[in-house]
Every structure is written in C-alpha cells, then in structure tokens.
Simulated assay, not measured.
Amino acid sequence: MARRRKGRDISGWLIVDKPAGLTSTTVVNRVRRAFDARKAGHAGTLDPAATGILAIAFGEATKTIPYVTEAMKAYAFTVRFGAETNTDDAEGAVVKEAEGRPSDDEIKDALGRFVGEIIQVPPAFSAVKIDGERAYKRARAGEEFEVEGRPLWVEELVLTDRPEPDLAELEMTCGKGGYVRAIARDLGRVLGCLGHVLTLRRLWSGPFELEDAVTLERVESLAGSDELDGLLLPLEVALAELPEVRCPAESVGRLKNGNPATVIAAGLEYGEECWASHDGRPLAVGRYKGGELHPVRVFQL
C-alpha cells in the first residue's frame, strides 16, 4: 500500500515571479513546503537563469495545468551577438564566434522568418526526449545526437531596443513548446553573426500576468500564516479560455462521479469543450453533447 503524502489538501494557483539561479522544480518544492501542501505542480518550465511567470498549481488545480501549458505565452529577452554557446544561453561554453554586427533594419527583416508556423529545433540542452532519454542528459555526457525540429506557432517577435551593437532586446509571443534559446541561436545564424540568450523573462502565461505574481521571498516569509492562503487564485482562473456552463443541483452527484449530466448552456456547439460550475464552484471539464456535459476531468472540491 502506497504511503499517503503528508500535507494540507489545498487547491488553487499561485503565480510566482521566479528568481534567477533556481530551477523551476526547486521553486515548486520550496513553495509547496511553505504552504505545507500535499500536491503541487507547475505549468511550463523556465530555465534556471530565467525569471518571470511560473504558474504553480495545488491540489485539484493540478488537473487544469494542461490548459495553461497549451496557452500562449510572452517573453522578453536579450540576445548577445558574436558567439554561439553549447547551451544557447550565457550559462554555456562558447563553441563558435563571429565578427560583424547586424543593423537594426537587418534584425527586423530577419525576425520575419520566425513569425507564424515555423519548425524549431530545440536546444541540445533541453528536456525533449531522444530515444526515451532527456536531451540535456546526453548533452552533459558529451554524446553526439540530433534533435528533430517541431512545429511552433509564433504570434509576434519584435525588436524593442538596441542598447549596444552586441545586444538586441526582443519580445516574443508564442504557443506551447517554444524555446527562446533556439530563437536566439537561429537568429544569430541567419544574420551571420551568431548569438545566444543573455537574459530571459516570461511576461505572461495564458491567463496569468506579472501583476498576479508574488516573489518567492514573500511566500517563504509568510509560511505558517493565515495570510499565505490569501495569495492563492481560484482553480477556475486557468479555465478562462473555456466557456462555462451551469450545473443544476440534481446533476451535481452524477457529474462528481464522472458521469454525463444535464447542464444549462447557451450557444455551445456539439462536442465543444467547456467547464461546469454549481453555486460558483467548479465541478468538471468536459465535452458538451446534446444538453449534457461528458466529463473528462472532475474536481473534488
């Protein structure tokens, strides 16, 4: 019989402004300890050197992680021209160098190649799997291997500042699975001057913005206090992109047991994904079919 994890049964979202120098997993573990939470997870890993939005889900909110992971995200980052590194950021070793620096117009022209549906090759030092093993583990071991390209939707990629010839500040809005480090690497190659990420900050992720975020320092300073739970956002915030339907009292039991149940809805198409609530509390996410919600995720709140 598996041991039950200790901690409190709490549900909701906490948006942390991740500090540089820590892995996303480390931040999640420290936050979970501060809340004494039984279960926690995050939506979208940030590299250790990166900062910004790290959305952490507790309890039943972990069932809504996919809706944040799949959502659009925005990043502000700085590219340093003149060198390519083995990690495609400033943490790695320089493997190639190049002379010459692009003009602002050359950068703007090149950015167009990275907008829309593109094929992006993730960095060798990334969490993608190669024959069942994480790429970064193979890269650290010095293995030679190829990472396959994958489709990525880039909504916008713009030059926001050029503080000096070696540096370009950019902002990007993209879909799931985008690697800013790969954008910097490929932009440097297109421009012929090479490049890597110097700084990276996630500005927003799906429904979550920096104005929602708290620092890790504040979270840990409030550990054990009643004020800490007040930082949590409700589970349903992550479902903002889905339509809401109402569940009448007589349908609550069926829905909680994972069975199709009658809901009150208007304007939904057959098979459309939505979420059901009763008395302001989320009950389930599922597909709307002929007046019923067919649940795929049920919340035990």
Rank of each mutant, 00 (worst) to 15 (best):
E292H: 08
R30G: 11
G230A: 15
V147Y: 02
A261W: 02
G116K: 00
L268V: 09
V197H: 00
R281G: 11
N257G: 14
R38Y: 06
M172V: 15
L216E: 14
P260R: 04
S11L: 00
V214I: 06
I10W: 03
E169L: 01
G291I: 06
K73G: 05
A223K: 07
A74P: 04
V180E: 15
T160N: 12
L235H: 14
A238W: 14
F299I: 05
G82H: 02
A141F: 05
G267F: 03
R4A: 11
L231K: 10
V128E: 13
L191M: 14
A110R: 02
E84S: 11
I264G: 12
L191T: 14
V245R: 06
P151H: 02
L233G: 14
V197R: 01
A238R: 03
A2C: 10
L301F: 09
T173V: 11
S126D: 08
L159I: 11
I118V: 08
A43N: 00
W204C: 10
G271M: 13
L198D: 15
C274D: 15
G175A: 08
N259H: 12
Y179L: 10
P48A: 06
G267I: 02
E244Y: 01
Y75E: 05
R3F: 15
M172K: 05
R181K: 07
L170Q: 11
V158Q: 15
L14S: 11
D226T: 06
T51V: 02
P295M: 12
D109H: 01
A76E: 13
S251A: 07
K289G: 08
V115F: 08
A168S: 05
H196Q: 09
D229R: 01
T160C: 05
K289M: 06
D186K: 05
G291R: 03
S11D: 11
P234G: 08
L232M: 12
S251Y: 03
P123D: 11
A76Y: 09
E148K: 14
S225L: 04
G192H: 12
V31T: 10
D109Y: 01
R101M: 04
A127N: 01
A184Y: 08
L152T: 03
E169H: 05
S277V: 04
L203E: 13
T85G: 07
S11I: 02
N259V: 05
P66K: 06
L228R: 03
G224P: 08
E106P: 03
A284C: 03
D88K: 00
G177F: 00
L232Y: 12
